[in-house]
């Protein structure tokens, strides 16, 4: 049985990140966009875990924990914003919030 390669882990992280990015790009619903951003953050966390595992060091996990923390904060603020947008604009369409357009 051959060893698991670090490259495979990183490729998985990259693929998940890209899927998250596609999600952000193609969805107009702002909740979907937020969820997609979560996927991207998680993918970044995966990359750290893979790297940490490769060197058998705890730093990767520490970084994952930081990302986790940030994701939690981000999601709480993001959801509060979504609530406000829905309250003000009566829609979840991200394109509707374009009053600042040039």
């Amino acid at each position: 049985m051959s060893e698991l390669q670090a490259t495979s882990g990183l490729l998985l992280a990259g693929t998940l990140f890209m899927l998250g990015l596609i999600g952000v790009l193609i969805r107009r619903n702002i909740i979907f966009m937020l969820v997609s951003v979560e996927i991207m953050l998680n993918a970044a966390g995966l990359a750290f875990i893979v790297a940490g595992s490769k060197w058998a060091q705890p730093d990767g996990q520490v970084m994952f924990i930081f990302i986790l923390t940030m994701a939690a904060a981000e999601v709480s603020v993001g959801l509060a914003l979504i609530l406000q947008i829905h309250h003000q604009l009566k829609t979840l369409d991200s394109d509707a919030a374009n009053t600042m357009k040039g």
Partner: peptide
């Protein structure tokens, strides 16, 4: 990049 094996050592 050159590939390095992951031993799966538990941290």
């Amino acid at each position: 990049g050159n590939t390095v094996g992951i031993t799966g050592q538990i941290v």
